[in-house]
């Protein structure tokens, strides 16, 4: 009997990564980045892509938020809610591992 997966909750300490069945890939035909998953192909917008690219299995959510805030030249609270909501949604669909 294997241990069942549990629903993961996003915290500042979570270290998100892409699971094995998901990958980001540049599509030269459509000139855009695609997220490939078992049934679906997603076309993330620029902000989603910036979050997904940082889901590298090393950076914590806190670090990702700080990093994005400095890139977008805005304060952390402004991005935190969006990043957390995005990760919760993608984690609930098993597209991001926490």
């Amino acid at each position: 009997m294997m241990t069942l997966r549990e629903r993961a909750l996003v915290s500042m300490q979570s270290v998100p990564s892409l699971p094995k069945h998901v990958r980001i890939q540049y599509d030269p035909v459509r000139h855009a980045f695609a997220v490939l998953s078992p049934e679906k192909v997603f076309w993330p917008n620029e902000i989603s892509l910036d979050i997904l690219r940082r889901c590298d299995g090393r950076s914590t959510v806190g670090h990702i938020i700080a990093d994005l805030a400095s890139d977008y030249d805005t304060d952390q609270e402004a991005v935190a809610a969006d990043v957390i909501a995005f990760l919760r949604e993608w984690s609930d669909k098993l597209l991001v591992k926490l």
């Binding site: 069942l4 997966r5 549990e6 993961a8 984690s91 609930d92 669909k93 098993l94």
Partner: peptide, 8 residues
């Protein structure tokens, strides 16, 4: 089962 298994 949100976050545990996707059901289509």
């Amino acid at each position: 089962l949100a976050g545990v298994m996707n059901i289509d």
